[in-house]
Design a protein around this nucleic acid. Structure first.
Lengths: 238, 238
DNA sequence: TCAATAGGGTGTCAATTTAACTCTAAATAT
DNA sequence: ATATTTAGAGTTAAATTGACACCCTATTGA
């Protein structure tokens, strides 16, 4: 059997089954005004026109799931090389009242200072505080909740937090971020101690004075040290 | 706009997009002969006829992803109410050479003593040791690896291990299971200590003498105590 | 019947890790 | 110069973890 015949046979075999619309929905996290937020938009199409939803789109026939997620993220934000991870697939029959649609959710961590806010607003998207966006369409609230759970777990074992801050950041900034993620205060001495003990930060000789008179030293995440750290099998836990 | 018109509009909107075959593949774990194994089968259809693969099938239009996974598991094993959790979705364009297929993987934990082995064999499935089934079709090896990683993580934070043993089991049995899962030895005193400290086991007044002359006490997992335990926010870690 | 065997069951201690805690230093604004 | 504000550092007690060795019990077969 040659390749063409092969394909024909397959298509015949597969054609007994249903094909289904597959969508990707993104939970896009950002850290603004010392708060953890996600991007949402108001739907300008049916079903559920006028309601708030996550940013999503359909998977095209010439792209993988990951590609689709990257494309959707790029279209909205203009950003590439953003932290993006698949989360969970939602497949209830009636989850989208319009049609049978399966949705694969992804969550992204943006450095908001890289963002062109006008571009985002032009697409009708806006930032919504975690915990204040409970009125999303379909099963999007479940998606957000699952994303938060995942983020909280991941941020304990991997230095994910850095993905939400500028490349250069201070330790107090990082602490505020972690406090926003976990919704609780950390002891600053212990936070600093554990963080520096991991030895994945490079201290710069510059201070950031935007938040204090004294000024706080800037640090940079050192990916090489982090990789060494992973190979040695250590665990990151704040 | 009434409901029928609504649906029509949606279909028109959605119809610009591609529909895709969606499959479910199951990584079915079992504990036999003191080893952790998974069920695989030899494909009797194209593509990749004759090669080994996980157990899978296509999602039908009248069932959710979870339903499809349960159905596939039931058809092969005749079992219901089995531990089953969604794992990850695979969406590379060429992952299945026959057609564009997206696969949502699930992993299951079977109590093998509940299993009708003839029934399973009639379906052409067989048990394969973890680590000895590296020659699976498509991306199924990735699926197995991801399932193992997940199982190892979950088994630390939830008493998942019980799902792979009979309802009544001894502590040494459980330890052997955990050693098979993590591929390392545990200290039996520490294992027992931590396990019993969680207070989710009910000790029975019967001994199992199948593995020793002295006999080991049987225990039963106490779901009520476990739920209380979860509500109090404790963590299970061996 | 008694000795040997094979696996089951138990407690302590040292080392490490975690969590709680308070003050001084630096820079700016008044 | 003085007041204000945030950054940054070290100690100790408590809890947790991990290492470690011996006796118990039922069976088997000499």
């Amino acid at each position: 059997m040659n390749s063409t015949e092969q394909k024909k046979t397959n298509q015949k075999y597969y054609s007994k089954f249903t094909r289904i619309y597959v969508a990707v929905d993104c939970i896009i996290f950002g850290f603004l005004n010392n708060e953890l937020k996600i991007l949402i938009l108001t739907r300008d199409f049916e079903p559920a026109m006028g309601k708030s939803s996550l940013i999503g789109g359909f998977v095209r026939k010439d792209e993988s799931l990951d590609d689709a997620a990257e494309r959707i993220l790029y279209d909205l934000t203009g950003l590439e090389n953003v932290f993006l991870e698949q989360l969970y697939s939602y497949g209830k029959i009636e989850r989208d009242p319009g049609e049978r649609v399966i949705s694969v959710s992804y969550y992204a961590l943006l450095k908001v200072q890289d963002l062109d806010h006008d571009h985002v607003e032009k697409h009708g998207a806006r930032w919504c505080n975690i915990g204040e966006c409970n009125e999303l369409v379909f099963d999007h609230n479940d998606m957000v909740e699952r994303a938060l759970t995942r983020l909280r777990r991941r941020a304990k074992n991997q230095p994910l937090g850095f993905e939400l801050l500028p490349r250069k950041f201070t330790i107090p900034q990082l602490q505020v971020l972690y406090e926003a993620i976990y919704q609780k205060k950390f002891d600053n001495r212990n936070f600093r101690k554990k963080l520096l003990a991991m030895n994945v930060l490079e201290k710069l000789e510059i201070k950031d004075k935007s938040t204090s008179k004294k000024g706080a030293y800037l640090y940079r995440f050192d990916k090489k040290r982090y990789n060494r750290f992973l190979e040695e099998g250590f665990l990151f836990d704040l």
